[in-house]
């Protein structure tokens, strides 16, 4: 493990609680909610035409 990598990991650990990273967490959650919504739509299509 290089020193550069250790430094980068330390920086990332410090940044993980920043507002910007929390904002990205919200975006990720929205993408996953979108996936769930799509699966529900597909479920209704499947049932409607069964």
């Amino acid at each position: 493990m290089s020193e550069e990598y250790k430094t980068v990991k330390r920086e990332m650990n410090n940044e993980s609680s920043s507002l910007s990273e929390k904002g990205w967490g919200l975006v990720y959650a929205l993408v996953l909610v979108f996936l769930v919504v799509l699966i529900f739509i597909f479920y209704f299509i499947t049932e409607a035409y069964r």
């Binding site: 699966i39 597909f42 479920y43 299509i45 499947t46 035409y49």
Partner: peptide
Amino acid sequence: AFDLAGAMSHMEVL
């Protein structure tokens, strides 16, 4: 068209 496709098992997504 979708009704017809469904009747012939082509609208099953999941």
